[in-house]
Each structure stands twice: as structure tokens, then as C-alpha cells.
Nucleic acid binder design. Structure first.
Length: 595
RNA sequence: GGCCCCGUGGUGUAGAUGGCCUAACACGCCACCCUGUCAAGGUGGAGAUCGGCGGUUCGAAUCCGCUCGGGGUCGCCA
């Protein structure tokens, strides 16, 4: 074939040309005599007309064409007869009068309609992903993703970043997420891990004098999947030497802003608002607040300090707080819904429950309101600006628990009552995260990672009161979705040693796990910091998709399987022998062995 | 591991309170008719025992239990 003409680009200027075109049969309209085939490629549709008197051979061949056949057609491009133009179609002024057609590939009837946006069961879509990819949604999404990534690359290049590929067979570390482990054939009994992030390598790049590193990095985490989480995902990974927070912020705002403009033709604006972690927790009960709407949380502990209500009194006696969320217009919600779904939201967030106080024109409703004094209710109304018609939600508990429950209710109310303005994008930075948190085992663990710098004001009390120490870590949040996080890194050995002491890591343990990094820092390490942003989530947001699976070509299901290939598969005895492994239990369930 | 939702021909759906469901509709598929349609039209046809197994019942797609699959979410994701 000479020069390929794409179907969606063919217009009136080509009228009279002899063309040879290829594509999929999108629609077929057989009038017995005249037969129309709509030919499709990724650029659009073109109508091909087969006339039995003008080209009997081609017409007969067209009768055999079915939907989704791949065909090559020859003919002359003509203007459509007056009155038969299709204004819905970009190429609707013209049509190809076919003189010949070749079936390049026949097609069985598709399990679902290709040219139709109607929803199809996602399991079926994934099983036939190659057909799903032909449909408008995935075509649009993957092309937008491509443009987004190209935008990132162009922008990074323009700012002097260089793209480095770091290894995907890396040492396994027990910290953080569960690793995907790869057995090592040449050292039986030893394993590789797939990287959860290129963190340590990019820091080594800084020591290596590369100055500004970036990578479109595939990362793996063997944890349960969600709408916004897959086993493997792609992040924009960035590290910069000789920088402070503001430099990293500016770089990320520009990178994402440039890519956003390129993929979605929307200017994001900059700089993005910054909110400390403390303020986010107080105002939204979340470290990834959805700031597209207000309705912030309030604290009413003082207003109820002298309360007789046992529920409140016992929480206060235990050192807890009473926090509040006002739901304007919420008093009309059915009692059954409040006591059902709304209570459930609070319980799922870890609270024992939520006190739901509808305020009507004739006063507060519910048994707890009746147990409260009139002055108490008046103070509550004043403090929270609750008016007739509103619903007041109160949670009395540990401050964090109360915040989490009301934060969850705030999101629930927003979806239920339509508080979220459509089309809005609220990017913001969350700063000043705590350095440590308590893990499930009661021990301290880094909130970000142990190479994060401590806030300069908090070094003095790092070891005496580690939980109060802030770090120089920061997140990007957009519309309540965590987009990514970063930090300024420690490069001074004595600071790093202090962190490891707080974490209770023995020196030989540190040496075994991170000796290579600490060694590098003894050879002239520039101060540096960076960021990692989830590309799947960014593209999902940009497209308004509800799940990252909609922007990933071949995703896994929630149970971590690929319905298309059947992976994961069993392993043959030979494969196991090669890598020196023996199965403790035979695998159950279906699934063929590979090879 | 917990909680919640869903599972009817190839696809999408309908099938309150169990019997009139020997399961309906739309699209798709097959055949025939039809020379200007474009979600073409017309006529006819094939195709599901209601995810699977077990139970309750005179009787179940409809009720119960278990199980499998899909999805949401909590835990988990330094």
C-alpha cells in the first residue's frame, strides 16, 4: 500500500481521487441492491457504497462482509448525492464508491457491541479487552493517557530533567507494602523483588550528579486492589538536587500543568493552595481532603462541656472531643436512611456511632436532643450555625476517630446531596506530615519513609517525643484523591542515624538493608528531594473516570487476576526445580500450567 | 480476613407479594425481500431452565444455606 489514508480525515478536497482504504466494518446497511459499509479506523468513519450495476463483483464481496471484518476497499471518492449528506459524521459529505473489496480478516460476532457506549459487564470487557479497546471510551482514554505522558516528558525535558531507567529487579525490603517476589535461579533460595517505587535508586542518581531525574516508572505492590489501586501502576517519579520544598512544588505544578493542558486542554493554574496536615485533619478529618466544597468540620467540645448526656460525658472523660458536621437541608432526610446508611458510614470509619440531630422549625428532633438542655442546644446551634431544616451530626470520641467519622460523613453527604460542583478540579499540597505514626504492632513507623527530613523546628524533640515531630514530606491531593507524595531527603549520616534509633533499628540491620545508600551519602551527597505522582489516577481524574482500570490497557480484576490471559497460572515442576523452590501445598482451583 | 451490592439467551434489561414463565423486550445473530441508507426498513427464524450445588415447598428465576464469579468498601497500601 502506498500512503495510508486515515478514514476520519478524508474530506471534500479528495473528491475524485482513486483511494485504497483499510479498516473495520462498523455498520452494514444492505438494501438488496445498494449496500453501504461504514468503515472504521481509530480516526473515524467513512461510508463506502457498493453499487451492483456499477461494480457487481465488489457488491457480491460486500454481501459477505460482517461487522468487525477487516477489509481493504478500492474506489473513487465522490460527493454524496444532494440531500443524502450526513451532518453527524465528520466525513458525511463524501463517500467511497467501491470498485473492489478484499476481506483481510473475518470476524466472529462480537460478544458486545463495538460502536456503542452502553455499559457492558466489566468482566466480559476484560476477557475481550482487545475488542473493548476498539470502543470509543478506551480509544479516547488511552489516547488521552498517551498525550498526558508525552506532555510530562516534554515538560520534564524542558526543565532539564533527564529520563533514567532504574532496575525492576531490586532487593526486597520487608517494610511498606508486600513485595512481589521473583525467585533467583542463579542463587537458589534468594529472591528479587519488583520495586514498590524507584525511591532509593533515584536518590543514588542524585549522588551520581545527574541533578534532575525523572522516570515514567512502573511500580508493584502486592496489596488488595481497589477502584484506584492495581498491583502494578505507573508513576511520574522525580528527584532534584539542591532544592527546597518550593522548588519541588513549582516543578510538579508545571509538569502536571503542562501535561494536563496537553491531554485535557484545560489550564490548571498555579501555584496550588497549601494546607498543613494538622489543618486538613481539623477541617476535613482527612489527610486527602476533598476541597471542592466547604461544609468543614467543627469542634463543639466547649459548647457541651457541662453536658449531662452520658454518651458525651464519657467521651469527654476519656479525653476525647465532640466534633460536628452541619448538613444544610439534611433534616428532610428519611429517619430510616439516617439510622441506616449514615450510621453505617460512621461505624465503618471506626466510631461507635453518630448522633444525628435534625433541626426542624419546631425544634430539634430525636431522643438525644430531648436529653439535652435548652441552653446546650442553643449554644450548639450558635456555634455550628445550624438552622431549621439542617441536620447536625455529632461524634464524641477520640479526636482522630471523631474526625475520621465526620470526614467520611462529609463525603457521604456531599454525594447524597449534590454538594460537588461538576467539572471542578482542586489540586492542593498537604504539608508538614507527622514524621512517625504508630503501627499495628504498637511500634513507631515512618508515615512517609525513613529517609525523610524532619522539620527543622522538631529535631530537638525527635527522640523524646517522636510522635509530635513533623517531617518535610508533602502530598498532592486532588478532589479527595491522593495523587502522590514526596519529601526532602536526609543526606547527613547523623540525622539518618537518629531516625533509625527512633525506629528501633539496630545498626547491623540498617547496614544490611540500607548500607549501600548510607555509603553513597558518605561520598558527597547533594541535598535533594523529590516526588512521585500516580499517572493512572491523574488520567482517571482528567477523564472523569470512576476507576483507574478505565485508563489502563490491560488491568487486573479486584481478585488480582487477568480474565484475558488467565494469569496468574500454575507453575511446572521444571520451573520450580530451576529456581530451587518446592510448593508447600498444591494449588487449588482451575488454571493451566505455563509451558 | 470483615461488611455491602450484583449474577436471567452473545450484549443490555423485564420478570412485587413463589404458581398464568413450557421466561418477555431491545440490540446482536441466521434466512428471505428491498438500489440512498446512515441506530436503514420489512417478514420469518435460531438462541437462556434463570452463575453452580444443596435445601424448603404440591410447585422456585423468584424463599433459605453453601459455593463460584464481578464490583464497592474497611483492614492493608512505610
Amino acid at each position: 500500500m502506498s500512503e495510508r489514508r486515515y478514514l476520519g480525515t478524508i474530506g471534500a478536497e479528495a473528491v475524485g481521487a482513486e483511494l485504497e482504504l483499510v479498516g473495520w466494518v462498523h455498520h452494514r446497511r444492505d438494501h438488496g441492491g445498494l449496500t453501504f459499509l461504514d468503515l472504521r479506523d481509530h480516526t473515524g468513519l467513512l461510508q463506502v457504497v457498493f453499487n451492483p450495476t456499477a461494480a457487481p463483483e465488489a457488491h457480491r464481496a460486500a454481501q459477505r462482509c460482517r461487522l468487525e471484518y477487516v477489509v481493504r476497499v478500492q474506489g473513487r471518492l465522490g460527493r454524496r448525492p444532494a440531500g443524502s449528506e450526513n451532518r453527524q459524521l465528520a466525513t458525511g459529505e463524501v463517500e467511497l464508491a467501491a470498485t473492489g473489496v478484499t476481506i483481510l480478516s473475518a470476524a466472529e460476532p462480537a460478544p458486545f457491541a463495538i460502536g456503542d457506549e452502553r455499559p457492558v459487564d466489566e468482566g466480559v470487557r476484560l476477557q475481550y479487552r482487545y475488542l473493548d479497546l476498539r470502543r470509543p471510551r478506551m480509544q479516547r482514554n488511552l489516547r488521552a493517557r498517551h498525550r498526558f505522558v508525552q506532555g510530562l516528558r516534554r515538560s520534564a525535558d524542558a526543565m532539564g530533567f533527564i529520563e533514567i531507567e532504574t532496575p525492576t529487579l531490586v532487593p526486597s525490603t520487608p517494610e511498606g507494602a508486600r513485595d512481589f517476589v521473583v525467585p533467583s535461579r542463579l542463587r537458589p533460595g534468594f529472591v528479587w523483588a519488583l520495586p514498590q517505587s524507584p525511591q532509593l535508586y533515584k536518590q543514588l542518581c542524585m549522588v551520581g550528579g545527574l541533578d534532575r531525574y525523572f522516570q515514567i516508572a512502573r511500580c508493584w505492590r502486592d496489596e488488595d486492589l481497589r477502584a484506584d489501586r492495581q498491583f502494578e501502576f505507573t508513576q511520574l517519579d522525580v528527584e532534584m538536587a539542591f532544592v527546597e520544598e518550593t522548588d519541588v512544588f513549582a516543578a510538579l505544578e508545571r509538569l502536571i500543568g503542562d501535561a494536563w493542558a496537553e491531554a485535557f486542554a484545560i489550564p490548571l493554574g498555579a501555584p496550588w493552595p497549601r494546607l498543613t496536615w494538622q489543618a486538613a485533619m481539623e477541617r476535613y478529618g482527612s489527610d486527602k481532603p476533598d476541597t471542592r466544597f466547604g461544609n468543614e468540620l467543627m469542634t463543639v467540645t466547649e459548647a457541651l462541656a457541662g453536658t449531662e448526656v452520658r454518651l458525651f460525658r464519657s467521651a469527654l472523660a476519656a479525653g476525647g472531643a465532640i466534633r460536628a458536621l452541619r448538613v444544610p437541608g439534611g433534616a428532610q432526610l428519611p429517619r430510616a436512611e439516617l439510622e441506616g446508611a449514615w450510621q453505617q458510614v460512621a461505624r465503618d470509619a471506626g466510631a461507635a456511632g453518630v448522633v444525628l440531630l435534625p433541626r426542624l422549625a419546631d425544634g430539634w428532633q430525636g431522643p438525644i436532643a430531648r436529653a439535652m438542655g435548652a441552653d446546650e442546644l442553643a449554644r450548639l446551634a450558635e456555634r455550628t450555625a445550624t438552622e431549621a431544616g439542617d441536620l447536625l451530626c455529632l461524634v464524641a470520641a477520640d479526636e482522630r476517630v471523631a474526625g475520621a467519622a465526620l470526614g467520611a460523613l462529609r463525603l457521604h453527604a456531599a454525594r447524597r446531596l449534590g454538594w460537588i460542583p461538576p467539572g471542578r478540579l482542586d489540586f492542593l499540597w498537604i504539608t508538614d506530615f507527622p514524621m512517625f505514626e504508630r503501627g499495628a504492632d504498637g511500634g513507631l513507623q515512618p508515615l512517609h519513609h525513613p529517609f525523610t527530613q524532619v522539620h527543622p523546628d522538631d529535631w530537638p524533640r525527635l527522640e523524646s517525643d517522636p510522635l509530635s515531630a513533623r517531617s518535610r514530606a508533602y502530598d498532592i491531593v486532588c478532589n479527595g484523591v491522593e495523587i502522590g507524595s514526596g519529601s526532602l531527603r536526609i543526606t547527613r549520616p547523623e540525622q539518618q542515624a537518629a531516625i533509625f534509633r527512633v525506629l528501633g533499628l539496630a545498626e547491623d540491620e540498617v547496614e544490611a538493608k540500607f548500607g549501600f545508600l548510607l555509603g553513597a551519602f558518605r561520598h558527597g551527597a547533594p541535598p535533594h528531594g523529590g516526588f512521585a505522582a500516580g499517572i493512572d489516577r491523574l488520567v482517571m481524574l482528567g477523564l472523569g473516570e470512576p476507576s483507574i482500570r478505565e485508563v489502563i490497557a490491560f488491568p487486573k480484576t479486584q481478585t488480582g487476576q487477568d480474565p484475558l490471559t488467565g494469569a496468574p497460572t500454575r507453575v511446572t515442576p521444571g520451573q520450580l526445580r530451576d529456581v530451587g523452590l518446592r510448593l508447600a501445598e498444591p494449588p487449588t482451583g482451575p488454571g493451566p500450567a505455563t509451558r
